[in-house]
C-alpha cells in the first residue's frame, strides 16, 4: 500500500497545476460545508434559547402581589390545556431585583424605580410554538391581568430564518459538491488522456480495470482529504479569530467555544466525505474511459 501511495504522490507532483486546481475546488467546498455546519449548530442553540425563554408574560396590577391561591388557580387553568412547559410567578420584589440588576450601571434609573410601581407577572412557555396562542388566551382571561407580552412572532420568525438558512446553505453546499465532482472528473479525464498509451499497454499485458483505476482513485481521495482538511482548518481559524465578537454579539446565549470533540468530529466527517467524493469522481472518470 505504501508503494501505491508513494507512486500516487509522484503522479500528483508530475501534474502540479491539476493537483492544485482539484485541491482548491475541494477546499472551497469544504470551507462552505464547515461554515454551514457551524452556522447550523449555532442557529439551533439560538432557537433553543428562545424556545426555552418565557414566551408569554402576563402582567398584573402594579405594586400588588398575587396571593398563593390566585397563583395556584391560574397555574391549574393553564395546566388544563396540556401544553404548559414552564410556569413562573415573578413578584414585585423579584421584578425590582431584576430591574436593578439590569440597570446597575445607571444610578438615575435606579433612583426613579422601586417595587411599588412594578407589576407582578406570570411567565409561561409552551411545549410547542403552535400551542402558544391558546395559552395566551387562557392567561389573558384570568382576573387581574392588565397586559400580555407575547413572543410567538419572534420565535416563529427565528424558526423561519433558520429554515431558510438551512435551505440556502444546503443549496450552496450541494452546488459546490456537484461542481467539485465535475471538476475532478474533468481533471482525471485529462490525466487519463495524457496517460492513454500507458493504460493501453497495461491492458494489453493483462492489467485488470482495478489495477488501472486505483492510482486515479487514490489521487481523488487525496484531493478530497487535503481539501477537507484545509477548508475545516480555515473555518476553525476564522471561528477562533471572531470568537470575542460573536460572544459579545450573542451576550446571553452561550454559543462559544465549540468543543474540540465537536470540531474533530466535523473534521473526521468532512475528510470521509472528501475521500468519498474525490475517489468516486475519479473512479467515474476512469470507468467512463475503460468502458469505451
Amino acid at each position: 500500500m505504501s508503494g501505491k501511495f508513494s507512486k500516487t504522490l509522484n503522479q500528483l507532483k508530475r501534474t502540479p497545476y491539476q493537483t492544485l486546481a482539484a485541491v482548491m475546488v475541494m477546499f472551497l467546498t469544504f470551507f462552505a460545508v464547515s461554515a454551514f455546519i457551524l452556522i447550523s449548530l449555532g442557529s439551533v442553540r439560538v432557537l433553543k434559547y428562545f424556545e426555552a425563554a418565557p414566551q408569554v408574560i402576563g402582567f398584573f396590577e402594579k405594586g400588588k402581589d398575587l396571593t398563593d391561591n390566585d397563583i395556584a388557580g391560574i397555574k391549574a387553568r393553564l395546566e388544563e390545556t396540556g401544553q404548559l412547559a414552564s410556569f413562573r410567578y415573578v413578584s414585585i420584589h423579584e421584578a425590582e431585583a431584576i430591574y436593578r440588576e439590569k440597570n446597575k450601571d445607571d444610578p438615575l434609573l435606579l433612583e426613579l424605580v422601586n417595587y411599588k410601581i412594578l407589576p407582578p407577572s406570570i411567565e409561561i412557555s409552551a411545549q410547542t410554538i403552535d400551542a402558544l396562542p391558546k395559552l395566551k388566551d387562557v392567561l389573558k382571561s384570568q382576573p387581574g391581568v392588565e397586559d400580555i407580552a407575547f413572543y410567538e412572532d419572534i420565535v416563529q420568525s427565528l424558526s423561519n430564518w433558520i429554515k431558510n438558512i438551512r435551505v440556502f446553505g444546503l443549496s450552496i453546499v450541494s452546488y459546490l459538491l456537484v461542481q467539485s465532482i465535475l471538476i475532478i472528473i474533468t481533471l482525471t479525464g485529462m490525466k487519463i488522456l495524457a496517460r492513454k498509451e500507458e493504460i493501453e499497454i497495461l491492458r494489453l499485458i493483462g492489467a485488470s480495470n482495478w489495477f488501472i483505476c486505483w492510482p486515479f482513485v487514490l489521487e481523488g481521495i487525496i484531493y478530497g482529504i487535503i481539501g477537507a482538511f484545509l477548508g475545516w482548518g480555515l473555518t476553525y481559524l476564522i471561528l477562533l479569530y471572531t470568537t470575542p465578537v460573536i460572544v459579545a454579539w450573542f451576550a446571553d446565549i452561550t454559543l462559544l467555544p465549540v468543543s474540540m470533540v465537536t470540531m474533530l468530529g466535523i473534521l473526521t466527517m468532512e475528510m470521509l466525505v472528501g475521500a468519498l467524493v474525490g475517489g468516486w469522481a475519479s473512479w467515474l472518470a476512469v470507468y467512463r474511459f475503460l468502458r469505451r
Binding site: 491492458r203 499485458i205 492489467a207 485488470s208 489495477f211
Partner: peptide
C-alpha cells in the same frame, strides 16, 4: 472481466 486473465497467459513481444 476475465480478458486480463487470458492476456496474462500470453507473454507478448509487440
Amino acid at each position: 472481466k476475465k480478458i486480463p486473465d487470458l492476456r496474462k497467459k500470453i507473454g507478448t513481444v509487440f
